[in-house]
């Protein structure tokens, strides 16, 4: 039986039967095998629904301009981020995207999206929009630029349309420590302090990644506070009939890049929802996810808003393990 592509390339985030918040960073661009296949040889994800994902975030950003922020002082860092993203895309998909020219004038071609643009590096007027917004429109990932100054990181710019219960417009301008203030407990706080020191110490050009995860209803990636009216009431009511189809594991593939020209940190968040039904097709995944949900520390469970959804998902996953083969397919 062939494994469907979304499962085969899924970055399943739970290597153990228990989970606690940790920095869990590893080198970026390194392929990692899973029980169902492998993921991670590229940093920018291009899945079967790539074009739809790009259109979807364009629509959100077009409707709500506050999904984009850029401090005036983030100009150089935004160009730095843009060049890094376009070069990365061209390197990972040479047949589909090219960045040409080595002087100030460069030509970008993204055949998959039908985008062609010529611009002058550092000249904002040569682009149809802000460099970071331009680059963000070429990739599926949400992009955030963190400036490195005064021995801390600061949220200087970003385009985010799939935040998980946070809002870019509120978080703009915050320090890394302020951004992570809602984390549960001193241990988690220390994890984020160490993570910030780690990021501050990276050398220009280095790229790392980590996985984050949660559960959500439906496969809509945009769980921002901004979009709360669309998803909040349903989450509160929790009227789930078929968890296999309605509850999704939300894995966030987060890349952390120390940008080469400015030393700012580019933070990329790729959201990969997978239905519990799909998770259950890989018995190792179903078992570990159920076990993690059953043993989650209360603070972590509350932080991830899993107090109700977690037990519900765990129970469903356990039931599938005892159900006749084929019952879990969706």
């Amino acid at each position: 039986m062939t494994v469907p592509e979304d499962v085969a390339s899924y970055p399943f985030p739970l290597p153990h039967d228990t989970y606690r918040i940790s920095a869990n960073v590893e080198e970026a661009g390194v392929e990692r095998a899973t029980e169902a296949g492998a993921w991670g040889s590229t940093m920018l994800h291009v899945g079967p629904d790539h074009a739809e994902a790009i259109v979807r975030r364009r629509t959100i950003f077009g409707r709500e301009p506050r999904r984009f922020v850029a401090a005036p002082h983030a100009r150089a860092a935004s160009w730095d981020a843009m060049l890094w993203l376009l070069e990365r895309m061209a390197r990972e998909r040479p047949g589909e995207a090219q960045l040409e020219g080595d002087g100030a004038r460069r030509r970008w071609r993204n055949h998959r999206l039908g985008v062609e643009a010529e611009f002058v590096v550092g000249d904002d007027a040569s682009l149809p929009e802000h460099p970071l917004a331009f680059a963000a429109a070429q990739v599926e990932e949400d992009v955030v630029v963190l400036g490195d100054r005064g021995d801390a990181l600061w949220l200087d710019a970003g385009l985010v349309t799939a935040a998980s219960v946070w809002s870019l417009a509120f978080d703009a301008g915050m320090s890394f420590a302020e951004l992570h203030r809602p984390v549960p407990g001193d241990e988690a706080r220390r994890v984020f302090e160490r993570a910030e020191r780690f990021l501050l110490r990276l050398h220009p050009g280095e790229a790392w990644r980590r996985l984050n995860w949660g559960l959500q209803l439906d496969d809509e990636a945009d769980l921002s506070l901004d979009a709360f009216p669309a998803w909040g009431p349903r989450r509160a009511a929790l009227d789930v009939v078929d968890p296999g189809r309605e509850v999704f594991l939300r894995t966030e593939v987060q890349h952390l890049v120390k940008l080469p020209l400015t030393g700012s940190v580019l933070f990329l968040i790729g959201v990969r929802p997978l239905s519990l039904g799909r998770v259950a097709t890989v018995p190792g995944w179903a078992g570990r996810l159920a076990s993690v949900l059953e043993t989650l520390a209360p603070g972590t469970s509350a932080y991830k808003e899993l107090d109700t959804l977690g037990p519900l998902a765990a129970e469903w996953l356990r039931r599938q393990a005892h159900a006749p083969a084929g019952a879990a397919a969706t």
Binding site: S167, D171, A172, G173, E178, F228, P229, P233
Partner: peptide, 14 residues
Amino acid sequence: ESRVHGAVLGVPRA
């Protein structure tokens, strides 16, 4: 709290 907004977050509730 966001010091740059001079405000605390109002978290939406259903």
